Lab assay of single mutants.
Amino acid sequence: HAATELTPEQAAALKPYDRIVITGRFNAIGDAVSAVSRRADEEGAASFYVVDTSEFGNSGNWRVVADVYKA
């Protein structure tokens, strides 16, 4: 099962156990969220919340930071 994305309210009520950072070329924010979901799932997380997204220069590469939560 894939890790689910939390709302800001849900994330605020929970304590993350880790923070992950992924970088890559994403065509849309949805693609980045899917990549975070896969990584969170690999780490055994039940859910995640994207904290920050930023573009690296003009290369089209993105850096996505997310907190991950157990259950």
Rank of each mutant, 00 (worst) to 15 (best):
R25P: 09
F26K: 01
A66G: 02
A11L: 03
V68M: 13
R63P: 01
S34L: 15
E42H: 08
A12S: 11
N27H: 12
D52Y: 14
I22C: 06
G30L: 10
T23F: 14
V51G: 00
P8Y: 14
A71D: 14
G44H: 06
K70H: 13
Y17H: 04
E9Y: 08
W62K: 03
D18R: 14
D52V: 12
G24M: 05
S54W: 12
K15M: 11
A2W: 12
I22Y: 00
T23K: 06
I22M: 05
A46F: 11
F56I: 15
N61C: 15
E9L: 09
Y17R: 01
L14H: 08
F26E: 00
F48E: 01
T7L: 07
A13H: 13
V33K: 13
A28H: 14
V51W: 04
G30P: 07
I20Y: 03
F26T: 00
L6I: 05
N61K: 10
T53K: 09
V68G: 00
D18A: 15
L14D: 04
V51M: 02
A35H: 06
G24D: 03
E42C: 11
G30H: 13
A11Y: 05
A2R: 14
K15C: 14
V21G: 00
K70N: 09
W62T: 04
D31N: 05
P8I: 10
P8F: 14
A28M: 09
A2Y: 14
V51C: 05
V50E: 02
W62P: 00
Y17L: 03
F26W: 10
E43M: 15
V33D: 01
A28Q: 11
V33I: 15
T53Q: 08
I20C: 04
R39H: 06
N61F: 15
S37V: 09
V64I: 14
L6Y: 02
P8M: 13
A45M: 10
V50R: 02
T53P: 02
D41A: 15
D18N: 13
A3G: 03
S54P: 02
S34E: 14
I20D: 00
A46E: 13
F48K: 01
T4G: 06
L6R: 02
G24N: 02
D18Y: 10
L14P: 01
A45W: 14
D67N: 10
T7F: 07
S37I: 10
S34K: 14
A40S: 03
Q10V: 07
I29F: 11
Y69C: 03
P16F: 04
A3F: 05
S37F: 05
V50M: 07
T7K: 07
A35M: 08
F26P: 00
A3H: 03
S37N: 08
P16A: 07
E55H: 10
T4C: 14
D31P: 03
S47L: 08
S47I: 04
P16V: 03
Y69H: 01
Q10M: 09
D52S: 15
G30C: 12
K15E: 10
S54L: 13
A28K: 12
G24Q: 02
V65L: 05
A13I: 13
S37P: 03
R25A: 09
G44C: 08
T7S: 10
S34R: 15
N61H: 13
Q10L: 08
S37L: 09
D31M: 07
R63W: 08
A45C: 11
A66V: 13
S59L: 10
